[in-house]
Write a protein that binds this DNA or RNA. Structure first.
Length: 218
DNA sequence: GCGACAG
DNA sequence: ATCTTGTCGC
C-alpha cells in the first residue's frame, strides 16, 4: 500500500525529470577530471563512493564516501530512488574538494522506460554532465550502425553498446552530453583488462571495501 | 495473462 | 546488489 504510493509519485517525478534532460555536445579535449559513482551493500547498509579520476595522468586523484542504512527497495526502473540519495551526497562532498568535469554513474541514463535512469536523474538534479554505464540491458531498441550497436528510444539514439571480448556495457546519455560523446568518453577510459571504465571500476572496488569494513563494526 | 526486469 | 571455493581460460 505504501509502495503503490511511492511508485505513483516516482513515476510522476521521472516523467518531469526526463523532460529536463539536456542533450548537448561536450568538449572532450577539455575534460580532465572524471568522477565515478557506485554503491555497495551489506546488511541493509549502503555505501556510496565518488572517485575523482585524472584522465590525463590516468590515476585516482581523491574520493569521497557516504554510508547510510537504506530503506527503499530495489525495483527495476526505480533504482535512483534507492541509490541516488547516497550517490549525490558522496558526489557533493567530492565536488567540494575538486572540480569535476563529468560524472560516470553505475546504471543507465536515458536507456530507461521513461528516459530517466539514475544517471539522468542525478545529472538533472545537480545540473551537471553525466553518463550512464550499465552492465546489463534494460530498455530500448537495439540497432546496428556499421560495426556498432546503438540503443534507440522514440526514434533517437540515446546510447551505445560497447563490446569487449564476450562482455558488453551499455553507455547512455545521462545529462548535458550526446550519445556519441558519452560513448567516446567511456572508450577513452577503457582499461585493457576490465569491462568497466576506470572511474567506475575504482568506485566499485572502494565501495565494496568500505561497506565490508563498516558492516563488520555494526 | 505472460514475460522482462539497471543495482 | 549479495550469498560464496575452486576452477576454467586468456
Amino acid at each position: 500500500m505504501i509502495m503503490t504510493f511511492l511508485i505513483e509519485n516516482a513515476l510522476r517525478a521521472q516523467k518531469i525529470l526526463s523532460k529536463l534532460v539536456i542533450i548537448q555536445p561536450i568538449n572532450i579535449s577539455m575534460i580532465n577530471i572524471i568522477a565515478g559513482l557506485d554503491v555497495s551493500y551489506k546488511d541493509g547498509l549502503g555505501c556510496a563512493v565518488a572517485v575523482a579520476y585524472d584522465s590525463k595522468n590516468r590515476a585516482l586523484t581523491t574520493y569521497s564516501q557516504y554510508c547510510e542504512k537504506v530503506a527503499i527497495p530495489y525495483i527495476p526502473g526505480f533504482l535512483a530512488f534507492r541509490e541516488a540519495p547516497l550517490m549525490i551526497k558522496a558526489l557533493l562532498n567530492l565536488m567540494s574538494k575538486i572540480h569535476i568535469d563529468i560524472t560516470l554513474v553505475n546504471g543507465h541514463g536515458m536507456a530507461h522506460p521513461r528516459k530517466c535512469g539514475i544517471a539522468s536523474h542525478i545529472g538533472v538534479v545537480l545540473n551537471i554532465p553525466t553518463v550512464g554505464v550499465a552492465k546489463s540491458f534494460l530498455y530500448g531498441d537495439v540497432i546496428r550502425i556499421g560495426d556498432n550497436e546503438a540503443i534507440v528510444i522514440d526514434n533517437t539514439i540515446v546510447g551505445y553498446i560497447l563490446r569487449r571480448n564476450s562482455k558488453k556495457i551499455y553507455v547512455s546519455i545521462g545529462n548535458k552530453v550526446t550519445a556519441e560523446d558519452a560513448a567516446n568518453i567511456v572508450l577513452n577510459l577503457w582499461n585493457y583488462s576490465y569491462i568497466l571504465p576506470e572511474p567506475l571500476r575504482l568506485a566499485d572496488e572502494l565501495s565494496r571495501k568500505t561497506v565490508k569494513k563498516l558492516a563488520a563494526k555494526l
